[in-house]
């Protein structure tokens, strides 16, 4: 296990380096730059800005400087949000996204797993059909539609929920709903199909034959074997959801990290593009590692080598 972990950490470092390098190259290939605006800035001011942020240096030198600084934990200053460091912006905004996203992850697990199990157990009944329609809707309807519909009815028409900010628990209801609609539905469907698989297995018949109660056989034997695909899905899902959604955050005016990814790219804020990409990449690699470890706990037959 220890050796495995070490191997994974090294592999993770290589992955993150590759992500960083590809991003660095690609973003420099895109036309435009951080200091362009509708109104032209004088050549002297542009030169001063470029000198200040080291953009006047050749590509190779900038790349090496960036890697060196990043290794020391210095992700530099944002080129657009003057006076703010990239780490500072991420540190201020990630917790906001993670809080909303974390609740959404919990909601999708607590709803998705039991509903999927029930749907599988009651397969072919009306309940199963109803669940299946709801799950399809949850997957098919894009989040901006969910957001807009919620906002219109609960926020504007009925006026029972606040439409912006995160000042009270009520503010969380709409964004969490919008964020968890897709993962809940997806988990429900995953759970249902893998549960159906398991329920048809011989050992389930054996369990029934030896007189185990419905509840025990379902939740002790079946769930444990059926949950593996959900865990696989959980890794990337948790990473993406905690990072925040550009759309949900924009519509509900949540000061999270989701919008920073898009804004950094649109504004050619090079240091922010690098910072957010490396942060997401690292988090993703970490989540995948956790998933691997969780596998071994759930299914002792899986060994990490």
């Amino acid at each position: 296990m220890g050796k495995y972990l070490l191997k994974r950490v090294i592999l993770a470092a290589v992955t993150i380096w590759a992500v960083a390098t590809i991003t660095f190259v690609l973003m420099n290939m895109v036309p435009g730059g951080p200091f362009l605006s509708e109104k032209a800035i004088s050549p002297a001011a542009t030169a001063a800005l470029e000198a200040k942020y080291g953009l006047d240096k050749p590509f190779g030198e900038r790349y090496l400087t960036y890697l060196k600084d990043a290794l020391h934990g210095d992700f530099g200053l944002s080129l657009k949000q003057r006076g703010r460091t990239v780490s500072g912006i991420i540190a201020a905004k990630f917790p906001v996204s993670a809080k909303v996203g974390g609740i959404a992850v919990l909601v999708s697990l607590l709803l998705g797993i039991p509903l999927g199990v029930i749907a599988a157990y009651k397969r072919g009944t009306t309940i199963d059909s109803v669940f299946s329609v709801v799950a399809t809707l949850g997957i098919a309807v894009p989040s901006f539609v969910v957001c807009t519909v919620l906002m219109y009815f609960l926020g504007v028409k009925l006026g029972i929920l606040p439409t912006l900010g995160l000042t009270s628990w009520k503010n969380y209801i709409m964004p969490v709903f919008a964020l968890s609609a897709y993962p809940t539905s997806y988990i429900m469907r995953l759970m249902r199909s893998s549960m159906l698989d398991v329920l048809g297995q011989d050992y389930m018949r054996t369990a029934k034959a030896k007189g185990l109660s419905q509840k025990v056989s379902l939740f002790k034997h079946a769930l444990r074997n059926a949950i593996l695909p959900v865990i696989t899905y959980l890794g990337p899902m948790v990473a993406y959801t905690l990072m925040g959604s550009f759309i949900v955050e924009k519509i509900f005016t949540i000061p999270g990290l989701g919008g920073e990814f898009i804004k950094a790219i649109n504004g050619r804020d090079y240091t922010m593009i690098m910072g957010t990409t490396i942060f997401l990449g690292t988090f993703m690699v970490f989540m995948l590692l956790i998933v691997d470890i969780v596998y071994t706990i759930v299914d002792p037959r899986i060994k990490l080598k």
């Binding site: 540190a91 201020a92 905004k93 990630f94 917790p95 906001v96 993670a98 809080k99 974390g102 609740i103 995160l166 905690l242 000061p255």
Partner: peptide, 9 residues
Amino acid sequence: LASCGGGGT
């Protein structure tokens, strides 16, 4: 993860 965001914003 959620709670570490409490104070911030």
